[in-house]
Design a protein around this nucleic acid. Structure first.
Lengths: 208, 208
DNA sequence: CTAAATATACTCAAAAGTAGGTATTTATAC
DNA sequence: GTATAAATACCTACTTTTGAGTATATTTAG
């Protein structure tokens, strides 16, 4: 019997999924949590093999939560169950050492498969997640493509807070010229026309 | 027995909710659809009293779908079941003649209550939805607040497509000056500093 | 019909963003 | 240790946005 916990802020989803999974003969739902905090508060005393974790939740996102969970209970498996598909989230999830990544559009059969696969010591990433990763690797091989640097991500986030280059410069203790250079490099890398494109990119790719 | 159909693109949610609702003694789930199109294709032959409708779905959003459903089957009740809470969506839903608006964070008990209430000829809007509406009415009474006009919404959407004022002007066959005026009025009404603020507002309020 | 709201168009001026450079210092990787 | 990448900073030039006005035609609501 695989002991599974569910973390999701949507009660209907949480409860529905629990019912569906409990119907599987080898799965037992031992916990349902409406937030990562709620799970972390009980993780010490919880007899659990695998956590199904949503990403978008108030208070603490599922990826941060995964890091916390694995720090306390390194033997517990974490599988992401999110509605969003973007390569940055998937990569962040992998960095956080999740064992799988599923979409909410998945079927109950796929979720059960994923749980079994992960408990057998393998990873399970949904077809869509794999595809997304492959495409992001393809992009990286494109000579016109280059990853954003840490500093560029800083600038991107501040642009998205409606700050102008001078304000960004003040905030980061750099020259206005530097902020403008970073901004221009962003426009070039992301291949968009103006700051509006930057915000949309940031939103689509989970930077904000 | 109340005959309910569920429209939601997340299979796990759809299926889970169906199980939960089927357990209620007075509710029968007569259909599960992964898209509004799928529902509309079968609506003629479907013996259904009430549709639980998600908003954010590919192909056709739940509000457009509601209008279509009610055009064909005016006696069917539609209740929105969405994860998002914003006054514009709620108002659009009301305009589309929905009978209720629930959040996915609701409990199964609340959903069942809502279904019963609506089948008794009343409307059911969740506490959060009501609160959101009240706050939007409060805003309207604020002398500094004013609703966006249709034209302003046009301009807002084009700004979000990375167009500058000249390009917007060309697209709408108006003068560049006019486009600039609209843009400035938007900044003033939305109370933000630049186009970045406009995009975020547009996203937060479901304009794009 | 009339008043109010909306959409339209313009001017002038200041501020910010965009586009093309160049160049130095600081990390990082091989 | 030396390439390489990243972060830093500056210059010139041009475009766009923003701010603060004014003004008129067109719609809409009472």
């Amino acid at each position: 019997m695989i002991k599974v916990a569910i973390v999701d802020d949507h009660q209907l989803f949480r409860q529905g999924l629990a019912v569906i999974l409990s119907a599987k003969e080898n799965i037992q739902v031992v916990g349902k949590y409406e937030s990562a905090i709620a799970l972390l508060n009980q993780i010490d005393d919880l007899d659990v093999d695998l956590v199904l974790m949503d990403i978008d939740m108030p208070e603490m996102d599922g990826i941060t939560a995964t890091v916390e969970v694995l720090a306390i209970r390194p033997n517990v498996k974490v599988v992401i169950l999110s509605m969003h598909l973007n390569s940055i989230k998937i990569q962040e999830a992998i960095s956080a050492k999740v064992s799988g990544y599923l979409l909410k559009t998945s079927s109950d059969v796929e979720v059960a498969n994923a749980i079994e696969t992960v408990m057998n010591g393998k990873d399970y990433f949904s077809q869509e997640a794999q595809q997304e990763l492959i495409e992001s690797y393809r992009k990286k091989e494109d000579p016109n493509y280059s990853e954003l640097t840490k500093r560029e991500i800083d600038i991107l986030r501040l642009v998205c807070q409606e700050l102008n280059s001078q304000e960004i410069a003040d905030k980061l203790f750099i020259s206005k010229h530097t902020a403008e250079t970073h901004r221009r490099n962003l426009l070039s890398k992301i291949d968009c026309k103006n700051s509006v494109g930057l915000v949309k990119f940031a939103m689509d790719n989970g930077y904000i």
